[in-house]
Design a binder for these strands. Structure first.
Lengths: 337, 337
DNA sequence: TTGTAAGCGTTATCAT
DNA sequence: ATGATAACGCTTACAA
């Protein structure tokens, strides 16, 4: 591959001049500029980003740290959104390979060793050392679904609270008064804020809060299945179940059908996430759609803004969600309690 | 962040000596080595990979090019596998942001600009210019599911043919003789080889090939639905349907149930991919599992081998698959034809 | 408007 | 065993 020196020689000018042409400096005559550009074309020259980065102490690289890639159904959509934003920016995405179990591992050193310009962190809890290090090092960082901020760190999350609120409202309007909530563990913001949405929803419609209408289970279909079995054992079981995730809702629906009841006529069920399952399952699962693609786009836009403008204060971004109605909800059997 | 010069000063030796310590050269006395290592610890020095790359013309970076991230359910699993292998290697994964529609875009220039050491390409057909450029440039490359080879390019793919063969064998042994095949478009190796497996299976068991038992549709549940509707219209419809993808199988099952028939008692259905759908759908879908995680691991191992050893000839790797039996297959209604 | 020279953080070559 | 010095490909004062 041709280097800047090759171009300079070919065009009969100095390396500096070529550099100036590449970087669109104004103090180059039209004539030389043209000559240099021709040489660039001819030699198919492409500036070496690494060398450039060495002097500028940048890399035009956004680092990303992903935890539990496999179990998170959103990575690909998030990445697609990020790509979308990156494509217009000249940045590439550097997937940092970190051994989360190695106590010696330091993201900050890793980043500095590669001149990473900014970081996106997804799926790492705020209890973990990594996010805290990043915040402390004041490396421009955007967290996804982790409510952590710092001088150069912000975060983005879907509007979980409002999503569940919309669900409760929908069920209330259908006539439901006995509304249960099945949550995943609440170690992450997503879990906590969804639960808050449920509580707020009850309050808003003057419904009493019963702790036995709340089940906490693992974030999967098995968890939902067991949780629903518990709810069915209740003397006065709910007529509607709000789930903190589609995966949970799948298990809930199975438990209902295995108990000889039907969704939605006997019990209404709503999920969260609008994963592919939701549209494939029968009956189609009503759920809350998070626009992860958009989150991906925005996280990158914000991060690049932060990187390129040191005065840009790190944002807290809340991405709106939308209620997707399918066939898993209807009015309860008897509206009269 | 401390640089090698800082360490040298702190330890009272030359930069060269520090470099020798870092790179484990033998011509350093134990005494100086110890002294230098202490300074390194103290200053929390981490060698700058970018600067090192500039002189070594490497980057300890594997580039990856992903097409249609969103529609491919395997990206996250593939990436997880890749991470697994990368974690022991010192390489990071550089996600190249490419505008596939830009005719000016050149992967090769992109890679050389970033000193990318090797490339993994996934989801890009062999008709596309990008893989061909890579092969021609003799940049170490591994294609996933694209049967393209070159002096420095190999590929890896699941054993699609054998997977379908196992399916046909399974159905044959259950007593099925009227076995249909619903394929996605055959632009990709995966599609073609699966079809070949079907043909080979029929041949192996002396079953006649009927072209009206073969439906080609889009690679989704809609496509499968339409295809199955066509098959049901046949004067002598199949008793078993082999699908080239789980997504297709979902549609096939829906069409069967909408026609008032039942899976598997009336018609057996088998998918391919063992996506999460397969275990969630009712009845559970028998399918073929591809170990994408392992493919991810192996693709990286091979690539790094190629990068670090110029004489390593590019491999063609075929990853074994396994038949997963659930509830969507059983013996046909009447074994007598 | 153009070019010289120093420097970014390393490694490699070659003296000492 | 140790260290000067040049080089990797680029940007940037500063001089001309």
């Amino acid at each position: 591959m041709a280097s800047i020196t090759d171009v300079a020689k070919h065009a009969g000018v100095s390396v500096t001049t070529v550099s100036k042409v590449i970087n669109n400096y104004s103090d180059v005559s039209e004539k030389t500029r043209k000559k240099v550009n021709e040489s660039i074309q001819l030699l198919r020259y492409e500036p070496n980003v690494v060398a450039r980065g060495l002097v500028k102490r940048r890399s035009w690289t956004i680092g990303i740290l992903l935890h539990n890639i496999m179990t998170n159904p959103f990575v690909s959509e998030l990445m697609a959104g990020m790509q979308q934003s990156l494509s217009k920016s000249g940045y590439d995405l550097l997937h940092l390979t970190a051994d989360f179990n190695d106590p010696e591992y330091s993201v900050v050193r890793h980043c500095s060793s590669r001149n990473v310009d900014g970081m996106v962190v997804f799926g790492v809890g705020r209890d973990n050392k990594i996010p805290l290090d990043l915040v402390k090092a004041e490396l421009p960082t955007m967290f996804v679904d982790t409510d952590l901020i710092g001088r150069r760190a912000g975060y983005i999350t879907a509007d979980n609270r409002n999503g569940i609120l919309m669900v409760v409202e929908h069920l209330y309007e259908l006539g439901h008064r006995k509304i249960a909530f099945v949550s995943g563990f609440m170690g992450y913001v997503a879990g906590r804020t969804r639960f808050e949405g449920y509580q707020q929803g009850l309050k808003q419609f003057d419904l009493p809060y019963h702790s036995n209408y709340v089940e906490v289970c693992s974030f999967d279909s098995m968890g939902g299945y067991n949780a629903m079995q518990n709810l069915l054992k209740l003397p006065d079981p709910p007529t509607a179940v709000v789930c903190a995730a589609d995966a949970i809702a799948i298990g809930v629906m199975n438990a209902i059908s295995d108990a000889g009841l039907r969704v939605p006529t006997d019990i209404s069920v709503v999920g969260f996430d609008n994963t592919a399952f939701a549209s494939i399952v029968k009956p189609g699962l009503s759920t809350v759609n998070q626009n992860i693609f958009s989150i991906g786009e925005r996280v990158v836009n914000q991060l690049i803004e932060m990187v390129e403008n040191p005065d840009h204060s790190p944002p807290i971004v809340v991405e709106p969600v939308e209620l997707i109605l399918r066939e898993s909800t209807c009015a309860p059997r008897s509206t009269t309690q």
